[in-house]
Amino acid sequence: MDHRLLLNASALSPIMYSQYSRKISSKSTMDLTGEQLKKAETQLKRYLPSSLQVYGYLCFRNRSDQVRPDPVSVLVDRWPEFSVLICKPLCEQKGDLFKDILVFAKNNAILEETIRNSYVIDWTRYLCFGINSLHMGILTAVASEKYSLVTEHDSLVKKPFSLFFGSSGISIGSLDESHVALVNGTWKFGQSEVAVRMIRNMIANFPSCCVLDAEAKPVSWILTYASGSMGMLYTLPEHRGKGYAKVLVSRLAKRLHSAGYPVYCFIEDENMVSYGLFKKLGFNEADPSYRESWFQFNDL
């Protein structure tokens, strides 16, 4: 299934970094911490949009005073000049398996060596990857030696441009814990207990916006993934055609932009309604030769 990605990336200043990092395997894979994460963010910005997901995650991670990011190991093949960077969520509960492993790579051979490292990837459990489609052959080849590919979702990444923020005149709020079941029940990849933990974490720790009815119940909403991507935009059928989605996208985009985060989202090619909405709000497409893909391996 193809998607478009529309985005806006804000400028960030370079930050000094420590020259030391912790060696965690015989393959010299490094687990970044502290100032190294800030330096990695600066380096990844040079590779937008192909680095967008890992860049977006580090933007949130490095500003933990504003949000509480997921517990994730950030691994590189070497430091400070890395060719592969992987953001791997820590698995504390079964629901954590549903979270994406985000991958950025500049070198296919080093990527293959890195993902074969059992410390980096545990191929015995359920896995969900977000990775440039140019590397999909390597990922699936390594996986096929272990287990079969379960599902695949392709996404097209687009280039950042300026974003217009309009005034809506609509009173909106944020989602809370009581809305988890509603979001899970309407999300196309949700409707199961395994997605609940991820959605609960997104609502609790990352920006969201919703339109509330007279009884303070959400009728339209949008969330932010741990990678910084806006998503799960949904309006209840009986409330569509009222401009709620436009209001929510504008408000959340402005909020993310003001905080210094990249502003972007993934849209399926067939979803021309959403595509038209985001285009009208000032989002533009980027290099169509770049694709980000999602792969799931093994049973959950």
Results as ranks from 00 to 15, higher is better:
Lys45Cys: 13
Phe266Pro: 06
Tyr17Phe: 14
Leu223Val: 06
Met232Arg: 11
Leu58Cys: 07
Ile121Ser: 00
Arg22Leu: 14
Ser13Val: 14
Leu252Cys: 05
Gly241Lys: 04
Leu85Trp: 02
Gly241His: 01
Val157Pro: 03
Ser171Ile: 14
Leu223Lys: 02
Arg4Gly: 02
Ala40Cys: 15
Ala216Cys: 14
Trp187Asp: 02
Tyr147Trp: 10
Val67Glu: 00
Glu145Trp: 06
Val180Leu: 07
Val103Phe: 01
Lys254Trp: 09
Thr224His: 04
Val211Gln: 03
Val54His: 11
Gln19Glu: 15
Lys39Thr: 02
Gly169Cys: 00
Asp176Asn: 15
Ser167Ile: 12
Pro80Val: 11
Ser26His: 08
Val76Cys: 15
Tyr275Gly: 12
Ser50Asp: 05
Ser51Lys: 06
Leu97Tyr: 06
Tyr17Val: 08
Asp269Trp: 04
Cys210Trp: 02
Cys209His: 15
Leu175Met: 11
Tyr47Arg: 01
Phe165His: 15
Val84Ala: 05
Ala195Met: 14
Leu248Met: 01
Leu52Trp: 04
Val67Ala: 01
Ile101Gly: 04
Ala245Gly: 04
Leu37Asn: 04
Ser133Tyr: 03
His257Phe: 13
Ile267Asp: 03
Asn117Ser: 07
Phe161Trp: 11
Ile222Asn: 00
Ala11Gly: 12
Pro237Asp: 11
Met16Gly: 03
Val72Leu: 06
Glu35Val: 08
Lys99Gln: 01
Tyr20Trp: 11
Asn108Lys: 15
Tyr290Asp: 10
Gly241Asp: 01
Val196Trp: 09
Val247Phe: 02
Asn184Trp: 04
Leu58Ser: 05
Phe164Arg: 15
Ile138Leu: 08
Arg200His: 13
Thr235Cys: 00
Asp70Met: 09
Phe278Cys: 08
Glu41Asn: 07
Asn205Thr: 03
Asp31Thr: 04
Arg68Glu: 03
Leu223Gln: 03
Ser133Trp: 00
